[in-house]
Lab assay of single mutants.
Amino acid sequence: MAAGGDHGSPDSYRSPLASRYASPEMCFVFSDRYKFRTWRQLWLWLAEAEQTLGLPITDEQIQEMKSNLENIDFKMAAEEEKRLRHDVMAHVHTFGHCCPKAAGIIHLGATSCYVGDNTDLIILRNALDLLLPKLARVISRLADFAKERASLPTLGFTHFQPAQLTTVGKRCCLWIQDLCMDLQNLKRVRDDLRFRGVKGTTGTQASFLQLFEGDDHKVEQLDKMVTEKAGFKRAFIITGQTYTRKVDIEVLSVLASLGASVHKICTDIRLLANLKEMEEPFEKQQIGSSAMPYKRNPMRSERCCSLARHLMTLVMDPLQTASVQWFERTLDDSANRRICLAEAFLTADTILNTLQNISEGLVVYPKVIERRIRQELPFMATENIIMAMVKAGGSRQDCHEKIRVLSQQAASVVKQEGGDNDLIERIQVDAYFSPIHSQLDHLLDPSSFTGRASQQVQRFLEEEVYPLLKPYESVMKVKAELCL
């Protein structure tokens, strides 16, 4: 049975990233139509530049190519590739079939990587351009969430054990800070992308030097003109047959890092959902379990974690691919890159769409948070109580021993009897502590235990987050809708 299948058929496997999760716009960027249309555009740009620099290419040939950029006979191309065992030459023939007058000058002087690699770089750039505003929107939604809850005390956790208090907004800023680093890295790697350009079979530009009869300047002009037509500021000066596969490492490393950030955020949300302090959106008709109707599973956060793990592992592909590119190139890269580049971007696209949807509907339960604080705060307040007693004339050592005994009794009630923490009640009825009984409410005010959390939130948002989001103001209103 021949390899390949009808990918629109229910009898043929289709990647869930495309069929179930990723956005239509990201799927289109990695589609065959987008790819092969870009090949034709690159052939047109090459012909236009070659004509401008004096090669015998007519206006009629150029116009014929322009008129057929979208006229792609995919069936013919597939048949040609089956016959020739070469995808680029299959599309040269297919393009030439609908451009008979231009057929002889299509791909003039070029090698397969002229269309293959340059198209990949265009796709990487455009895919990054799709991700950047999506990530900015996630940051914006979380920034709104953090600002609104900047002063809401909550129990902090280290080692997932109760620690000092923080605020809900401050905790959210930990998430935002990681995503801001990801946004900066995505922008950097996007701006650092260079075009492969017009380089020939081993990167020496020998074929173009021959076409222009040894004119170095025209060869350099050709490279520059096509690079500018493709919208790049610069091209690699040095290439082998391909652009260095280190570029793929750079791009997928940034995406993998984004995956790590999203995994951490969504894990926190899942843990908070278990504590009943916070939940992701839950639709009115949504079913959490087929057997347990009360369940409210954090399905979206779980999906993000599941896909983020996949995204983090994909960076190993370009690392290994770059390491086995012998001399000017081997074909070890080809099949692998067809999979890992598309999957990385479709996965990143999915987790950003999902995280935006989550961040637009996060639900906080202040009463649950308050109750958990009441359970733990008495123990945390013991040092403040000791200091207040010393100020009232008591002995630190005597007070410490009193607190120690009462704390152990209260802990026994919590752990052995399943009761509430009654340390404060014990202190309130103990005559030894009568000098500070009137101060206990103040000493137990949760806001006095959150330090500068709310001020940190305000400063972080104003100095770091809002300036970073400013270039994306025009796209901030787009909502994230999930079908599944």
Rank of each mutant, 00 (worst) to 15 (best):
Y13F: 08
S151V: 02
L55R: 08
K170G: 01
A47E: 12
Y243E: 15
M278Q: 00
D11C: 02
D349N: 08
S257L: 13
R426E: 03
P435A: 03
V390C: 02
H7A: 10
P298N: 15
P10I: 13
V168Q: 01
S323Y: 12
L314T: 06
Y432N: 15
K295F: 15
T201Y: 14
H97N: 08
P298C: 13
I62C: 07
F95S: 03
T267S: 12
Y13H: 14
V457Y: 00
V363Q: 00
C304T: 12
Q375P: 06
I238V: 14
G5Y: 11
K101V: 05
K402S: 04
M26T: 06
E81Y: 03
R14K: 06
Q458N: 11
A410L: 02
R33L: 09
D73R: 02
K187Y: 14
F433Q: 05
S289M: 02
L311M: 07
Q205A: 08
S31F: 03
R149C: 03
F145G: 04
S257F: 11
M76I: 10
A143W: 15
E343T: 14
K35W: 10
Q51I: 10
L132Q: 05
L121E: 02
Q51L: 05
E302A: 12
R83S: 05
L255Q: 11
P467S: 10
R20Y: 14
A342M: 00
V324Y: 06
P133V: 09
E302M: 15
G288L: 13
K233E: 08
R14L: 15
T52N: 01
I269S: 04
I369G: 07
E302G: 13
Q397R: 09
L209N: 04
A3W: 03
D333F: 09
P435M: 03
E328Y: 12
N353F: 11
L352S: 07
T58F: 07
K415G: 10
R303G: 04
A308D: 12
F327T: 09
P24A: 04
S395F: 02
F236H: 02
Q63S: 04
R37G: 12
L362R: 11
F74H: 00
R141P: 06
K170D: 04
P133D: 02
V189Q: 15
W43H: 12
S334P: 10
D192I: 05
Q325H: 10
V368H: 00
V138D: 10
N71P: 11
V413T: 05
G197Q: 14
